[in-house]
Structure formats: structure tokens, C-alpha cells
């Protein structure tokens, strides 16, 4: 048998989806940071997390390949060291005073308390392009949770609220189980929060 007839295969990479997911995670991280400041419900939800708490959302596998190649294709603000060396991540930290801060994508030297891991890039893509709602993705085992499950529920709830703020109704309806009626959340609140969060997320 000529063994060379059957070469070893190194499957490639999915450039577009990686860039998209990285930008979306960055947006979500920033948006949660802002929403925690401006929205009472988000603030209350996040208050349930312990202080000095670090949360990470990432796409498996960690540290798969340095992203030097992608650095040029990404907008400058998204490129940070974490993204280049550790793959796609989003780290949020709640400090002693209870303030939420987006810490970028570099896990080095940080103790991660809650780790939410998309099993593969395709899973992250489906969730972050709203083809699958958070609940459906959870049902389909698209991500796994490391750490206290209770905190991940808090995070998922925050994610739902932020999605309702940021997305137009027609898309948000796909992303959450139940789109709030007028009585549950007024359109005015949605609209004002949407504008505020977008502006502040992209400027600060």
C-alpha cells in the first residue's frame, strides 16, 4: 500500500464567521457593560452575581491558533491581544463595588468563575446571527457551562434583556422565548435604551 495516497488533512478555518462572531461578542460585552449602568432590570439581575466575579463567553477550542492572520481584517477596536493568542472570547468582570466592566478577550492572569463555551464556531454563529435563540441553543447543547449553573441563568436572562433592547422586534422575537408586551416593558423604554446603549457602547 502506498501510504502517501492517503494524506493527513488539516481542516481549514472559517474566516468570515470568526470575524463576525468576534465583533458580535465585543458588542454584547460592551452593551452589557452599558446596560448595567442605565437599566434597572439589568442592574438587578447582575446584582445576583457575587462581587469580584469574572465571566467569560468563548468559542471552543481555546488557543486553537493565533489570529495574526485575521488581525488585518478586523476593525482596530476589536483587535486585542486576547483575540490574537486565545481565540474568540469575551470577558466581563464585576468588581467589589458591583460595577460591571468589559475586559476584552485576554484571559491571561484572570481567574474565570463562570465559563460559557460554544462547542464550535458554527454554534456561536447560529446563536449570534439569531438563527437559534439562546433557549434553543441551550436545548441543542450548542454551548456548555463551566462553573455554577445558577450564574449562567442570570447571564442568559441579561442576554435576553439586552437583545430586546438592541434588536428590532422582528429579530428579537426569534432570539427570546417571549417578546415582552407593552405591560411588561414599554416601547419607550426599549427605544431609549436602544439608542443609549448603542451610542455608549461604540464610543466609550
Amino acid at each position: 500500500m502506498n501510504i502517501n495516497k492517503y494524506p493527513e488533512i488539516h481542516p481549514g478555518k472559517k474566516l468570515f464567521k470568526r470575524v463576525y462572531v468576534a465583533i458580535m461578542l465585543w458588542t454584547v460585552g460592551k452593551a452589557i457593560q452599558v446596560a448595567a449602568k442605565v437599566d434597572k432590570e439589568v442592574k438587578e439581575e447582575l446584582a445576583k452575581l457575587p462581587d469580584n466575579f469574572t465571566l467569560r463567553m468563548m468559542v471552543a477550542p481555546e488557543k486553537a491558533f493565533p489570529l495574526f492572520f485575521y488581525a488585518k481584517t478586523l476593525p482596530a477596536f476589536v483587535v486585542d491581544k486576547g483575540l490574537l493568542f486565545y481565540g474568540i472570547q469575551m470577558i466581563l468582570h464585576k468588581d467589589k463595588e458591583g460595577k460591571i466592566k468589559y475586559l476584552g478577550a485576554d484571559p491571561k492572569g484572570k481567574k474565570i468563575d463562570l465559563n460559557i463555551v460554544f462547542k464550535n464556531i458554527e454554534a456561536a454563529w447560529m446563536v449570534l446571527s439569531f438563527q437559534e435563540s439562546t433557549a434553543t441553543a441551550y436545548m441543542h447543547d450548542r454551548f456548555v457551562v463551566e462553573g455554577d449553573l445558577v450564574h449562567s441563568l442570570t447571564f442568559v436572562r441579561v442576554l435576553d434583556i439586552v437583545e430586546i433592547f438592541l434588536l428590532p422586534k422582528i429579530i428579537a422575537k426569534l432570539a427570546v422565548k417571549r417578546y415582552p408586551k407593552w405591560a411588561e416593558m414599554s416601547p419607550l423604554r426599549k427605544f431609549v435604551k436602544r439608542v443609549v446603549i448603542y451610542i455608549r457602547a461604540y464610543t466609550f
Partner: peptide, 16 residues
Amino acid sequence: IRAFADSMVIIGAIYD
């Protein structure tokens, strides 16, 4: 093969 992209998997060989 595309389904393995962006993972840690290396396909040792495809024996067909």
C-alpha cells in the same frame, strides 16, 4: 472536512 474547520481535529487520513 469543512465541518472540522476551526477545531483541534486533524484528520489522520481518509481511507476510501
